[in-house]
Simulated scan of single mutants.
Amino acid sequence: MTFTAAVSGASGYAGGELLRLLANHPDIEIGAITAHSNAGARLGDVQPHLHSLADRVLQETTPDVLTGHDVVFLALPHGASAEVAAQLPADTLVIDAGADHRLEDPAAWTKFYGSAHAGTWPYGLPELPGHRAGLAGARRIAVPGCYPTSVLLALCPGFVAGLLESDDVVVVSASGTSGAGKAVKPHLLGSEVMGGMSPYGVGGGHRHTPEMEQGLSRAAGKRVSLSFTPTLAPMARGILTTATARVTPGTGYARLRQAWEDAYAAEPFVRMLPEGQWPTTKAVLGSNHANLQLAFDDHAGRVIVSCVIDNLTKGTAGGAVQSMNIALGLDETAGLTIQGIAP
Rank of each mutant, 00 (worst) to 15 (best):
C146N: 14
A254Y: 08
S173P: 00
M272R: 13
L50A: 07
P343Q: 14
H51K: 13
A10M: 11
V7S: 07
F269Y: 12
G195M: 06
V184I: 12
T62S: 14
L240T: 11
R140Q: 12
L330T: 01
D91P: 04
S115G: 15
A154W: 02
T61V: 01
S11G: 08
T316C: 15
R223S: 11
Y113A: 10
S173C: 13
A220W: 03
A41M: 13
H49T: 12
D331A: 14
L330F: 10
I326M: 05
R139P: 01
E213A: 12
R132D: 08
T251C: 10
A23R: 07
A233C: 04
S175A: 15
G221R: 10
L163C: 07
F269V: 01
L285D: 14
L93H: 09
E83M: 12
H299R: 13
L74S: 03
M212H: 01
G315E: 06
A108I: 07
M1S: 11
R271F: 05
T281M: 15
S198W: 03
E332M: 02
C156G: 00
A10N: 09
L128Q: 11
G44F: 05
V184W: 07
H187V: 11
V7Q: 06
Q322M: 13
V160R: 13
S8M: 04
P148H: 01
A39F: 11
S52I: 07
